[in-house]
Amino acid sequence: MTKPIIALLYDFDKTLCTTDMEDYAFIPALGYTPAQFWSKANTFGRENRMDGLLAYMYTMMAECRAQGRVLKRDFLVQCGRSMELFPGVREWFGRINAFGESLGVEVEHYVLSSGLKEIIEGSGIAHEFKQIYACEFYYDESGAACWPKLDVNFTNKTQFVYRINKGVLDVADDKTLNDSMPDDSKRVPFTNMIYVGDGLSDVPCMKMMRAYGGQAIAVYQSGNRAGVEDLLAKGRVDFMFPADYREGTGLDVTVRNIIRKMAISDALTAENVRQLQAIGHGEVPGQAGLFE
């Protein structure tokens, strides 16, 4: 029998790492401070009425070109190696996976980020994710970044939640994504999803979780605690915790409790189906028990 799947969906910047991922190495390599670079990118976007993420990706290419640099994948991946992850992040995935296994469920991890996939690939934890949905460049024959391949902005993040729900993970496959599919055949029910983010950019996904029976968690550092408290007070998230992923923290204990609740719900549903099938075959339903 196939194990139920529970999916944890994460933003990345300020959720798994301490600041915008471009700030660690890419921006300093161009000789800018983060404030200078983001001001330049945001001003360019406003002046041209441009999606903010496309504006920053264009600015990355334009600034490299102006300095005689070629923006290549390997350089961006290398920039990811300077990333500072929150305490416990590197050990988090294995521990949570093992906990799910002990309850008879499979835990999967996904990234939904407005940062760069290439930088995430250099973070040392990219292998932990079943899929990384993040902004990404297309590279020409010489290996130079020349066009945005994927733009994951605040609102279109929700399409990737649907992809995970249906198991249609290929971003080029829109037909299957839009095909009608019975709820009981969807790979990961919304009720088996947990979204972890840090602020307003995550609200559309958090709202989906709360509307469809999943769970939404906001993590914070001291600098954004007030904003996260506002999300909780306004009912936009279910829980808030410091961004500390070590064993025994409030975040760790609560996520394990949510997984336990989801596993019990799945087991009860499976037992109900089993008993109905038994009746349909003229059998007397027995007692299977949870997690047997």
Rank of each mutant, 00 (worst) to 15 (best):
A263D: 12
G88M: 00
A55E: 00
N156Q: 11
L231W: 01
A172F: 13
N42P: 01
R73D: 03
N156H: 12
Q36P: 01
G45W: 00
F291V: 09
E229R: 05
E141C: 13
M57A: 06
F291D: 05
N48T: 08
K130P: 08
Q277H: 12
I96R: 10
G124I: 12
K3M: 11
D74H: 01
S185Q: 11
I194P: 07
L71M: 00
L85T: 02
N224Y: 09
Q215V: 09
M206C: 05
I259S: 14
K175F: 15
N224M: 07
F239I: 03
G124E: 12
S39H: 15
D238I: 00
S102G: 12
I194Q: 07
A7V: 02
M193D: 07
Y220N: 03
V70C: 10
I132N: 06
N42F: 08
M21Q: 14
R163G: 03
P182A: 07
Y24N: 02
F154I: 09
Y245T: 05
T158H: 06
R95T: 08
L290Q: 01
D238W: 04
F75N: 00
L231A: 02
Q67A: 00
M1P: 10
K40D: 14
F239Y: 09
S123C: 09
E22F: 11
F154C: 07
K40E: 11
V152P: 05
Y139R: 03
K207A: 14
F99D: 13
N156G: 13
G124L: 15
S142L: 13
Q277M: 09
E283D: 14
G213T: 01
A7W: 05
P148V: 06
F129M: 08
A233N: 09
G115A: 09
Q159E: 15
N178L: 13
D170G: 05
S201W: 02
E271D: 15
G100C: 03
V111T: 04
D173A: 09
A62R: 15
A134Q: 01
G227H: 07
Q215Y: 11
E118S: 12
R225V: 00
Y110Q: 06
A55Y: 02
A243W: 07
I279Q: 01
K175D: 15
V111H: 03
